[in-house]
C-alpha cells in the first residue's frame, strides 16, 4: 500500500437521505470506530477529497450538485455509495421528486447496501475503495461497481431463517 491509500480523505454528500446512513457514517469517527487511525479524514470540501461518500436517493436538485461535487474532486477519486437508496432509490424510489440512483449521475465504485449499513460495513466499503483508488492511481480504468441485488420482498427461505433463529432463542430462554 502506498501513501495514497494511507491517507484517504472523504467528502460526504447527503442527497436525499433520511439521515440514518449519515448518522452511522459519522459514528465511524467516534472513539468506538476511530477511522482516523487509518488516516481517514472527513473533509468538507471536494477539492481536498479522495473519496466521495454518497448517501440517499438522488432527487432532481441533487443531480447537478452531485455532478459538480464530483467534478471538483481531483483525480484519482472513487465514489462509495452507502445504503440501499443510493443503488435503487430505496423506499423513496417512487416519490415524485426522485431522479433515481447515484449511478445515473456519476460512476459508483463501491456499494455498501443495507438500511442503514453498520459502521463496520461502511469501513469495509471504504477499505475496498482504497484498493480501487490505488489501482486508479496506477492508471487502471476501473469499471463501475455492479449494483447490489435488490431484495424487494423477503423470500420464503429468508423468512424461514429468522423464524428458526427466533425459535432457537426462545428455546434457550
Amino acid at each position: 500500500m502506498s501513501a495514497s491509500s494511507k491517507s484517504p480523505w472523504i467528502v460526504h454528500y447527503n442527497c436525499n437521505s433520511c439521515n440514518g446512513c449519515d448518522i452511522e457514517f459519522v459514528a465511524c469517527l467516534t472513539p468506538m470506530y476511530d477511522v482516523e487511525r487509518f488516516g481517514i479524514l472527513h473533509v468538507g470540501n471536494p477539492k481536498h477529497a479522495d473519496i466521495l461518500v454518497v448517501t440517499g436517493s438522488v432527487n432532481h436538485r441533487d443531480v447537478r450538485v452531485l455532478r459538480n461535487v464530483y467534478a471538483q474532486m481531483p483525480e484519482p477519486k472513487v465514489v462509495v455509495a452507502l445504503g440501499v437508496c443510493t443503488s435503487s432509490g430505496g423506499i423513496f424510489a417512487d416519490c415524485y421528486n426522485i431522479f433515481g440512483d447515484v449511478s445515473k449521475v456519476i460512476p459508483v465504485d463501491v456499494y455498501v447496501p443495507a438500511c442503514p449499513p453498520r459502521p463496520e460495513a461502511m469501513i469495509d466499503g471504504i477499505v475496498q475503495a482504497l484498493g480501487i483508488l490505488e489501482r486508479k492511481r496506477a492508471g487502471e480504468v476501473m469499471p463501475s461497481a455492479a449494483k447490489p441485488v435488490l431484495t424487494l420482498r423477503p423470500t420464503a427461505a429468508a423468512e424461514a431463517a429468522p423464524a428458526a433463529a427466533q425459535a432457537a432463542e426462545q428455546g434457550n430462554a
Partner: peptide, 23 residues
C-alpha cells in the same frame, strides 16, 4: 479516547497530495 493515526501520517498525507491532480 481514540487510537489515532500513525505518527508519520502527515508524510502520507503530503505524499498523497503531491500525486493528485493539480486543480
Amino acid at each position: 479516547g481514540r487510537w489515532g493515526p500513525p505518527i508519520i501520517q502527515p508524510f502520507y498525507d503530503v505524499l498523497k497530495l503531491l500525486r493528485k491532480e493539480a486543480l
